[in-house]
């Protein structure tokens, strides 16, 4: 049963991902991206990562997509008037070859070996609690450094966006 759900979700994620890339209108790309986010959130749920699934919906499908749509609306993007430059044949060939190579390595690697499973959360602890625990023990420093990263990003955005001083 779980396997069927997984393959259904994975199929939706793949197809919607491909559709994101192949749309000509940015709004449609954004809408397909939402579908993709939901499918991936479903996969997280199957892997018992409830916290990540919730974050995926709230932050990505919610906040970030609203931001995307706003930007698209504010920039008033229409269908591109002129065709974008077509990629060369060589570029296409190189892209397809490399993608096929990566796919081959992954399929070959995983089909030959027993895949080690991730450690399950210790009994009595939910997914959210285990993440919180890690954030304040093993990953204490990266967690704090993230705040520096956010501060830099805010300062940078203000520098680039604020109106002229003098």
């Amino acid at each position: 049963m779980m396997a069927y759900i997984f393959f259904a979700l994975a199929g939706i994620a793949l197809i919607s991902g491909v559709l994101v890339v192949f749309q000509t209108h940015p709004l449609r790309s954004a809408l397909w991206l939402i579908v993709n986010f939901f499918a991936v959130a479903g996969i997280y749920l199957l892997a018992h990562a409830e916290f990540i699934a919730a974050i995926q919906i709230i932050v990505y499908a919610g906040a970030i997509m609203v931001l995307f749509l706003f930007v698209i609306m504010l920039l008033n993007l229409r269908q591109p008037e002129e065709e974008a430059a077509r990629p060369w044949f060589g570029q296409k060939l190189a892209g397809i070859t490399l993608a096929a190579l990566v796919a081959f390595i992954l399929v070959y690697g995983f089909s030959k070996a027993e895949v080690p499973l991730a450690k399950a959360a210790p009994p009595g602890l939910g997914n959210t609690e285990s993440i919180a625990r890690l954030l304040f023990t093993d990953y204490l420093l990266p967690f704090e450094v993230t705040s520096v990263l956010l501060l830099v990003a805010i300062v940078g955005a203000v520098v680039l966006a604020k109106s002229k001083l003098k």
Partner: peptide, 19 residues
């Protein structure tokens, strides 16, 4: 000493330099 620190350091550096 951990990949996540390399990534975070790289991003702190890069975002500042982009700006």
């Amino acid at each position: 000493a951990h990949m996540i620190m390399i990534f975070l350091g790289l991003e702190v550096m890069s975002i500042a330099v982009y700006v």
